[in-house]
Amino acid sequence: MSKPAILIYDLGGCEGCPLSIMRVYPQLINIANVYTKCLGKVDLDREYDYAVVTGPICINSPEHVEELKKIRKNSRVLIAYGSCASVGGIILYARGGQEPRPEHRVYAPISRVVRVDYAIPGCPPAPQMLISLLNCIRRGKGYFLDLFRAVALNPKLSGFDLMDEVVLNGLCVGCGACVLSCPTNALQMIDNRPDLIPEKCIRCGTCTVRCPRFSQILIQRSRLLQKASSLSRISGV
């Protein structure tokens, strides 16, 4: 079997995600043909089996929106990789108005613009993540794949959402998964419940997919969403 073609493309993030991927390049080339700007020219007009898009999409930059749509069209599986691409991350706070392009006001996870197959939070995800993910996608099933699919459909995820949906909602059992999943140590255990230090949360979303309760809610919600959208297709809404 020939190796799948994989595109790694940054849309204007900090480049931390493509660089973290580069660290597993020696392993990645064994399972895929890799196309990335870090190592040479990339051609967005050819077809790819996988496109790994990093960085947020700037809604006010038509060129970038077009680029993203082109990538979607030309790739079989589109993966939003890293917090900015998958859930927005730190850049959700952007308010525009900065020289020389003050019109770049709104940034969003890429699933707001195109259909995304899998969305992976993490700022940045550890290098090994991509290899595991590709292996799992090939097998095609499992709880975590469902989870990353659900993130693509429901990108509003951050420490604040973890508090709202799980902790303040009384669903937290106090396992401590979130506390061990925060890259900025914004979560601490107080009386066996996580508490958010708001000024430390960068909205990377890692805690939410690590929480056993939230991940379950996400998967369930995405099923309902899919059902609703297929119903609306049937009834022509």
């Binding site: 992976i120 995800p125 061990l180 999943s181 890259p183 890692t206 997919v209 690590r210």
Partner: peptide, 18 residues
Amino acid sequence: CQAQFLRQVKMFPLMESD
């Protein structure tokens, strides 16, 4: 629940410090 977390850390390390 903790096993689920550990499995995710092991298989899908979302953090470099995992």
